[in-house]
């Protein structure tokens, strides 16, 4: 666990207190602060990655951090492909990590 939230007490810019929110990530409850992005909440909880790629299933998390690379996409309340680094977390959000397998054989003909 190396990514983390800077403790407000140590922070030279002195963020004011904000409300605690809680979201569900693949069924697990994760708490964060109002105003954090989903990526911010996940990274602050020590998660370095959440998506798995379609090709070799390798893990991905935040890469560009500004909404350009789409590596960090998650499903939010049923909506797929939401950039976690862009969407603010809302209390009660249901987050599911994405692992979209490529189409395979054995489909109805």
């Amino acid at each position: 666990m190396s990514s983390r939230l800077i403790a407000a007490s140590d922070d030279p810019i002195r963020p004011k207190d904000s409300a605690v929110i809680s979201i569900s990530v693949d069924g697990e409850t994760v708490t964060g602060l109002a105003g954090q992005t989903i990526a911010g909440v996940l990274l602050a909880s020590g998660r370095p990655s959440w998506r798995r790629t379609s090709g070799d299933g390798s893990p991905r998390g935040v890469f560009c951090g500004i909404g350009v690379c789409f590596d960090c996409i998650v499903t939010v309340n049923g909506d797929r492909d939401v950039r976690a680094c862009q969407r603010r977390a809302a209390d009660g959000d249901q987050i599911r990590s994405q692992h979209d397998a490529l189409p395979n054989a054995g489909v109805p003909r």
Partner: peptide, 15 residues
């Protein structure tokens, strides 16, 4: 840019 954005916009340290 990600490190910057997370530091400035989230106060998250990436490592």
């Amino acid at each position: 840019g990600a490190a910057q954005a997370l530091a400035k916009g989230e106060r998250v340290a990436v490592g």
